[in-house]
Nucleic acid binder design. Structure first.
Length: 422
RNA sequence: CGGGCUGUAGUGUAACGGCAGCACGAGACGUUUGGGACGUUUUAGCCCCGGUUCGAAUCCGGGCAGCCCGACCA
């Protein structure tokens, strides 16, 4: 993509009042636009990142047998009445302008919707187990949206639901999802801590959260310095003992961001919707369920919180909007154009800063940018590899290659550039 | 939902109750190109409603909105 043609623009100043790093850098870089508190538009650059995250999640969900689908954003009252959750204050009621009473809520979770669907199709033990997921926006009436993308009122979520013949099979799948989640977060450049937690409005059972340690996090966890066993402060019995119940190691208190969670639901929802199956011996039994969530925007924001420096974002390789940020400076325009086409031909993702300055005589693009501005933008946007082509680099023998996270540069011959990157 | 702070051009910020300024951005012309260049010039604003006052961006009241702390929460 050519930087000269992206309709957004980077900003020199932080947005007024925003103190969280993710809000500052994502808005300055033109990744997101805040429409309301906790409600964001994803701009072209931010959407690239979000799609990278979505792809990773899809790959790992599909690998454990998840079937992708899509459910409605508007959830009718009858669904939440069935489980007594209509009055949970998390939801935004939806009404027509002339309606006296709301009969719908904007979906903040979809257990009820999918359980009813499952009840239509599941009748035998041979129909189990299965798991289905969607990537869709959730709406939650947060009393306090905060910290940029970290706690929003509308946010994109992957929600997976699994259906099993018995608790043992749920337990088996729960472990499979746990493994998939660790892979997902690892691929997104995040180290997560598997944390025992409460079930909130979803289940009375204990649940598990995937927590990333960060000062901006709103959760407090107690984590063992030795074995990483952790409990959320809301249920923790470790906070007083100071000693790990698993290995005896030292317990530390940490602020953390919850990027995902997994819930054993039991039979609460299958009871409410009459989701039964007939087992091999002809007995009618309730289906046992689990649900599993990941907030995509929160993953993106957390990556920024963890990976940045004073000049901007340092995207983890797998979720960077582009792999390469190509800059043409004076005397390098012709070569840069060729490199740009070559890299695209090799399926190497490249953001090309083709703004004027490289060739002042040909005003091929509307906007100009100085060399310094191009460097500043490359640092702010944070693609993993920066390539500069200029009179100076060509005299040195090729293009200058620099990793965003490193300070040293290297000259690579133009003919070897794409193989160097692959 | 309680508390605190804050709302001024596209963005970031000034202005004692008395002509709303600066910087960046954006447009034009020229110069310039290895770390957010320079000159000339143009552009564009007081969150909303009410009150006090000769006069309100400024004071008062009420809304609405944003940020932060707490409560809550995935």
């Amino acid at each position: 993509m050519r930087l000269s043609q992206i309709f957004t623009r980077t900003a020199r100043e932080n947005p007024a009042g925003e103190t969280s790093v993710n809000a500052q850098l994502l808005e300055r870089g033109g990744f997101v636009y805040k429409n309301s508190a906790g409600i964001y538009s994803y701009l072209p650059l931010g959407w690239q990142v979000l799609q990278k995250i979505a792809t990773i999640i899809r790959e790992e969900m599909n690998a454990i047998g998840g079937q992708e689908m899509f459910m409605p954003a508007m959830v009718e009252k009858k669904y939440l009445d069935a489980t007594g959750r209509w009055d949970v204050p998390i939801g935004f009621e939806v009404r027509g302008k002339t309606d006296e009473k709301a009969n719908f809520v904007l979906g903040w979770t979809h257990e009820e919707i999918l359980t009813e669907i499952a009840a239509r199709f599941v009748s035998s033990y041979q129909d189990l187990p299965f798991a289905a997921y969607q990537i869709q926006n959730k709406f939650r009436n947060e009393p306090r949206a905060k910290s940029g993308l970290l706690r929003g009122r509308e946010f994109m979520m992957k929600d997976l639901y699994s259906f099993h013949a018995d608790q043992a099979d749920l337990d088996r799948y729960y472990e499979a999802v746990k493994g998939a989640y660790h892979k997902i977060f690892h691929r997104c450049g995040l180290k997560t801590i598997y944390t025992l937690a409460a079930g909130g409005a979803f289940t009375a059972s204990n649940t598990h959260e995937f927590q990333v340690i960060a000062p901006v996090g709103e959760d407090t966890i107690f984590v063992c310095a030795k074995c990483d066993y952790a409990e959320n402060a809301e249920i923790s019995k470790l906070k007083n003992s100071g000693q790990c119940s698993q290995c005896g190691g030292k317990i530390e208190e940490r602020k953390a961001i919850e990027v995902g969670n997994i819930f054993p639901l039991g039979t609460k929802y299958s009871e409410a919707f009459g989701l039964y199956y007939t087992d091999a011996t002809g007995n009618k039994k309730l289906v046992v369920m689990g649900s599993y969530g990941i907030g995509l925007g929160r993953v993106m924001a957390t990556a920024v919180e963890i990976h940045h420096d004073e000049n901007g974002i340092i995207w983890p390789e797998n979720i960077a909007p582009f792999k390469v940020h190509l800059i043409a400076l004076e005397g390098g325009k012709t070569e840069a154009e060729k490199i740009y086409k070559d890299l695209i031909g090799q399926d190497i993702e490249v953001l090309y800063d083709d703004r004027n300055g490289a060739d002042l005589s040909a005003k091929a693009f509307q906007r100009e940018a100085s060399a310094g501005e191009k460097f500043a933008d490359a640092d702010l946007i944070g693609c993993p590899i920066r390539i500069v082509v200029s009179k100076k680099s060509l005299a040195a023998g090729g293009a200058e290659v620099k990793r965003r996270a490193a300070s040293e540069t290297k000259i690579v011959q133009l003919t070897q550039l794409s193989s160097f990157l692959l």
